[in-house]
Design a binder for these strands. Structure first.
Lengths: 328, 328
DNA sequence: GCTAGCACTACTATTATACGAGTGCTAATT
DNA sequence: AATTAGCACTCGTATAATAGTAGTGCTAGC
C-alpha cells in the first residue's frame, strides 16, 4: 500500500510527464511538495520498487510505468469537469436539431479530435444486431442494377450488381420473395437463410434463379460486419512518442483493421474503460479510453485513442459528457 | 539538344536511382556504357549544366532533377509491357463476372497498390455530372427516417433525417412531388431547383412543409461533390524519401483533402498524364500519374501517387492496362 | 524520519580525426 | 577532336575523445 506522500509524488510525476514528456527529476517535485529532493528521491525509489515508476537510464528522472498510469487512473486521478470552452464547442454540435444522431456523433468526435489531438472512433452495432428491414432495387441500365439494403437500426448499404439476360420482372419477384421471407433476420444470418429457405423457392418460381441467387448472396455476405468510423488518425503524427515511422506504420495498420478494435469492446457495461499501453493491443505507447452508448435503437462504442501519455482526466470528462448527451 | 550518349547517361542514372535511391557516380555508369568514368563525368556535367541532373553536395554522385525526370518520361522511357505476374493478378480481378465495374476498379487498384507500394486513387464523376434518378424514403422509427438518393450513374447516398410531428403521408407526398418535378436534374443544381420550383408547391399541398423542405434541402446540399477513393495511403510510410514525419503529415493532409486531387483532373483527354514533383501540387517529392476512363455511363479518373522516384514505365503500363480493360 | 552533501553515472553536445566515394581539371593518348 | 589516365580536392559519414550536466544513490548528521 502506498503512503499518502507516495501517492502525491506519483500523481505529480504522472501529471508533469503528461504535460511535457521528459523524465521528471526529484528536484522538480520537491518544489511543489514541501520537502527536500532527497526525501523525494527516497519516495521515488520506493515507487520504482513497487513497479510504478521507471528510469530511462541509471541516472535520469523517472517516467510512469504502465502500472503507474494504471494506479493513477484507478486511484489518483480527480474527476475533472470540462472547461467552458470544450463544453461550448461540443454543445453547438449537440444542439443542432437538424442532425441525426449518427451525424451528431461523428461531428462531435471530429470536434474532440481537433481539441485534444487524439484519434476518435465510433463503432456502430454489428451485423449480428442489425435486422433486415427492407430491400430496394433500382435498375440503372441494361444489365446492371443497384440493390439497397436497409436495416431496422437505419444502417444502409448498397451494391451495384450485374445480371445477364434477367428481366426486371424476375428481379422484382425475387426481391418480393426475400422481403416476405426473411425480413427481421439478423444480417449476418441472411446468407444462410437465403441458401436454405429462399433458394429452393426461387428455384421453382423464378427463371435465371441461379444468377439472381448468387448476386443477392454476395450482397449480404459482403455486408459490413460493423460500421467503423475512425476520425483524426493523422493526429498521431503530432505526438512526440510517434516520431518513428515504423511505429506509425504499425499503429496505422492496426487502426485500419477494424477487427482489432472489436476486441476492445468485449465487455458491455456502461462504464468508461481505460486500456493502457499493452492493454490497448495496438501499441505499448497507446491508450484507448472507451464507453458504450445506447439511445433508442442505436447503440455502439465511442473510443478515444492517443498516446499512453494522455490527458486522462480531460478525455474521461469528454466521453462522459458525450455519452450523457447521446443518451437523451 | 542532347547527344545520343547524354541521353543514355541520363536514362541510366534515372533508372539506377529509381531502383536504389543513392546518388549515382560516374564509375557505375561507365561500367554499362563502353567508355571511361572521366568521359561519363564530362557528360554528367553537361547534363547538370542543362538542369537535368543535380548534386546533393559538391562531390557526390548525381541525382535526377525534376526536369531530368520530365525528360526521361517524355523522351527516354521505353513503353514497357506488363510482366506476366502483374498481369495475372489483375486479370483475376477483371475476369470476375460477379463484380460491378466500380468494385472491379477499387479491387484492382488495391492489387496495384500492393504490388507497387504506391497509393492509388479513383475519382468518380462529380455531382455536376450525376443526374437525380430516384428518391426513396424508409421510415425507421417514430420521427426518424432515411432518405436514399440514387443517381443515373448508380451513385447512391443516404441520410438519416429527423422530423417532428410529420406524418408519413406528408413525407410520401413530398417525395412524389420531388420525384415528379426534378428527376433528371444534375445533383449540384437540385438544391436550387428545390427552392425555386418545389418549395412554392409543397407550401400549398403539404402540411409541415417548412420542416420537410429543410430536411430535403440538406440531403442534397450535403451530397458528396465527387466520389473519391484513396487506396493504400500508408504505402507512403514505406518510401525512404518520406521518413520525415512532417513530410508525411503534409502529404496525408493533402490526400485527405480531395479538393486538391480535383485540380489534377482539369484536362480531360484520354491520355496518361504525368505530374512530377512540384507539378503534383502535393509535395516536391511526389509524382502523380493519371488517366481518365469512360465506360458506358460511368466515367472518372484513375491516379497512382508515389515518390518522384517512381517506376514510371511500370506504372504507365499498368494504368494503360486498367483503362483498356475498363473501357470494355 | 528528513535532509545536506558528495561521489558517481550515463546521456548530450562538441570537436578532432580518419576514411572514402565522388568530383573537376589537366595533360597525355588515340 | 574526342577520350582517358591521373591526381588534387571536397565533403559527408563514422569513430573516438572530451567536457558538461541533470540526475541518481548513499551516508552521515540534524
Amino acid at each position: 500500500m502506498l503512503t499518502d506522500r507516495q501517492c502525491k509524488v506519483l500523481k505529480l510525476i504522472v501529471e508533469k510527464y503528461i504535460k511535457d514528456p521528459v523524465p521528471v527529476g526529484s528536484k522538480t517535485i520537491s518544489k511543489t511538495l514541501k520537502c527536500s529532493s532527497a526525501t523525494v528521491r527516497n519516495e521515488m525509489s520506493a515507487l520504482e520498487e513497487a513497479g510504478l515508476l521507471e528510469k530511462t537510464h541509471t541516472s535520469s528522472g523517472r517516467v510512469p510505468s504502465e502500472e503507474g498510469y494504471r494506479y493513477y487512473v484507478d486511484h489518483l486521478m480527480e474527476p475533472k469537469k470540462m472547461t467552458g470552452e470544450d463544453m461550448l464547442k461540443l454543445q453547438t454540435v449537440f444542439h443542432n436539431q437538424q442532425l441525426s444522431l449518427s451525424d451528431v456523433i461523428v461531428k462531435s468526435l471530429q470536434v474532440i479530435s481537433d481539441m485534444t489531438n487524439y484519434t476518435t472512433v465510433v463503432l456502430g452495432s454489428t451485423s449480428h444486431e442489425n435486422l433486415l428491414k427492407q430491400i430496394e432495387v433500382v435498375p440503372i441500365d441494361e444489365g446492371s442494377l443497384i440493390v439497397i439494403v436497409i436495416t431496422d437500426r437505419g444502417h444502409v448499404e448498397h451494391k451495384n450488381i450485374r445480371l445477364q439476360d434477367v428481366s426486371l420482372e424476375e428481379v422484382k419477384k425475387t426481391v418480393n420473395l426475400i422481403n416476405n421471407l426473411i425480413i427481421g433476420t439478423p444480417i449476418d444470418e441472411v446468407s444462410a437463410k437465403l441458401e436454405y429457405e429462399v433458394k429452393p423457392i426461387i428455384g421453382k418460381y423464378v427463371k435465371q434463379h441461379e444468377q439472381l441467387y448468387n448476386a443477392f448472396y454476395h450482397v449480404f455476405s459482403d455486408f459490413t460486419n460493423q460500421e467503423v468510423n475512425v476520425v483524426g488518425k493523422n493526429k498521431f503524427l503530432q505526438q512526440p512518442e510517434f516520431s518513428n515511422i515504423e511505429k506509425i506504420r504499425s499503429v496505422f495498420n492496426k487502426l485500419d483493421n477494424p477487427e482489432l478494435l472489436h476486441k476492445i469492446e468485449k465487455d458491455d457495461d456502461n462504464n468508461i474503460k481505460v486500456y493502457i499501453g499493452s492493454e490497448s493491443k495496438i501499441d505499448d505507447d497507446v491508450t484507448v479510453i472507451k464507453t458504450r452508448f445506447k439511445s433508442g435503437n442505436q447503440e455502439g462504442t465511442l473510443a478515444i485513442i492517443g498516446p499512453k501519455r494522455m490527458e486522462y482526466d480531460r478525455v474521461v470528462a469528454m466521453l462522459e459528457y458525450m455519452r450523457e448527451n447521446i443518451e437523451r
